[in-house]
């Protein structure tokens, strides 16, 4: 396309069995783990968010 470059196609998993709850909990308060779900990974998928330099 001339005007639009799609960086990421759909990334929200809405289908199938969702909500198994096996992923990390994610407090976002200032005094705690400071994780929003934006930086969480699905426990059932292999690849994790880029927490290490090697895997960026």
């Amino acid at each position: 396309m001339k005007h639009v470059n799609t960086v990421v196609k759909s990334c929200l998993h809405k289908e199938g069995k969702i909500g198994c709850g096996e992923c990390n909990s994610s407090c976002q308060s200032a005094c705690k783990t400071s994780c929003t779900v934006g930086n969480q990974s699905c426990a059932r998928r292999e690849e994790r968010v880029n927490t290490k330099k090697e895997s960026k």
Partner: peptide, 15 residues
């Protein structure tokens, strides 16, 4: 932490 974002393998919508 606040700039980390997983646009490929993030959690499911329920989470």
């Amino acid at each position: 932490f606040h700039f980390m974002i997983d646009l490929k393998n993030g959690p499911c919508v329920a989470k």
